[in-house]
Design a protein around this nucleic acid. Structure first.
Lengths: 250, 250
DNA sequence: GCCTCCAGAATTGTGCACAATCGGCTCGGT
DNA sequence: ACCGAGCCGATTGTGCACAATTCTGGAGGC
């Protein structure tokens, strides 16, 4: 019935319209988000509206909107009349974020393990492709790419689990854990163990019951364990402490 | 040009400043959120900026900001150049939200059951107080109060679990499940079974291992099961269907 | 010497005016 | 009478100007 209209000329405009405008803001959000994740914008950095507006070539109100969005995702902190800062999570918040990730990603792995085998071809293909990308980034020692790919890997699994809502929640949590890593990473850490991901992929394909889930939990535990959530480096007094033992150069 | 103002008498105000301003926005968000949850604003309702601005006695840009926040929480849908609408979840999204709630609330119940016994007095007190409130609302057949209290109950448990991040995520999910209920509730449904909550409280205090968790999952299953997620009432064509059998009045 | 207080500058917050866009309505053609 | 085109009212989107607040540097008093 409704399928008629074979020869209907394109009455409406092809409407590439608002998509462009809208994605411009989304693009800025992603751009800033990635910059925060890979530490080009370390926690605590002041994000001046004017500077960002200039950097992205947009008006200040656009930036303002973007910052509001990022603040909602707890990636930046908005202090009234003071401005926007890259969020600096507390150790407590960092622990909470990782715990939340364990809760959600365990659920995701459960669902993935219950998928009928063998896994669909496109899924296998995407897993292998992603593995190759991570390998390449590791060989190239491309730290930024590894961070980005690591997040994408977890997100990819969430997609496969088929629950977009959980995936959306996880997106935020991944951003926030990147932030936590940036804030609390120890000096000598190898972090993003692409090896963990490799094993996870293998376990997922192999389908030994529970193994992939266990690996995921251990993986998240390991990442969290590599953080230094004990020594209290909070507030801004640490700056004074750092330079306290330096003699006056005069 | 502008300010004459060479004389500056009481230059400073007693500063009831941003705290009031800031919470004003939060208040509007809560207000609209509650209105959506208890169905004063059914899914699909157009939220005109001007009307809301007038209703809350604030400027349009304030409303605009609030709508952006609510859109981020998926409680309203923002259509470019068309405006804001109370979100109308799809059956798929409704299922996803409930699945996400099961994932998170199971984790919360796990943690609550692992709490050392007996539970702290303030926790017991709050549980009992809340139970009394729900009983009262049920006796008074105060539907709106029951909906609000039901959400608060789940949030209360999340608080007790001590993970503010998970609690925050759950806050959004509860709002969204309220929406799902508003969108898909069957005509003859008793819904918010305060009885479930009563049993949950008892199980939690009694601490028979796993019982509270099981009750919670069954509770969420039951709420979801009361929804009609099968019959496809999507799109706007249902309006035509509704009036299809009505004869022309002239 | 140190603390307090106070301009000046820089930055954020907000109202307003206008531009852009959409849906509905009317009108003219077939 | 139906269909499409085009205008109009209403609503949303955006830039701008100005108000409010905070921060900085420095002068003055204790």
């Amino acid at each position: 019935m409704t399928t008629a209209a074979p020869a209907k000329p394109a009455r409406r405009t092809p409407l590439p319209r608002n998509a462009a405008r809208n994605s411009a803001e989304a693009r800025i959000v992603r751009s800033i988000g990635e910059a925060i994740a890979d530490r080009r914008l370390p926690p605590g950095t002041k994000l001046t509206e004017e500077s960002l507006a200039e950097a992205f070539g947009v008006s200040r109100e656009r930036v303002r909107k973007v910052l509001l969005l990022l603040a909602q995702r707890r990636v930046v902190t908005l202090i009234p009349n003071r401005g926007a800062f890259v969020a600096k999570p507390t150790p407590k918040e960092a622990r909470e974020v990782f715990e939340a990730r364990r809760v959600i990603e365990r659920a995701i792995m459960d669902r993935l393990e219950r998928l009928p085998r063998p896994l669909p071809d496109d899924m296998l293909e995407k897993l292998r492709d992603h593995g190759a990308l991570e390998d390449a980034a590791e060989r190239a020692a491309d730290r930024k790419a590894m961070i980005r790919l690591s997040g994408q890997f977890h997100l990819l699994l969430a997609e496969f689990a088929g629950n977009a809502t959980l995936a959306g929640i996880l997106t935020d949590l991944i951003d926030r854990s990147s932030l936590a890593i940036a804030a609390f990473e120890r000096r000598s850490s190898h972090t993003c163990s692409a090896d963990d991901h490799r094993r996870l992929i293998a376990a997922l394909i192999g389908n030994r019951p529970g193994e992939a889930t266990t690996l995921m939990i251990e993986h998240l535990d390991e990442v969290e364990r590599q953080l230094d959530l004990e020594t209290k480096t909070d507030t801004r007094i640490d700056l004074k402490a750092i330079f306290a033992d330096e003699p006056e150069p005069a």
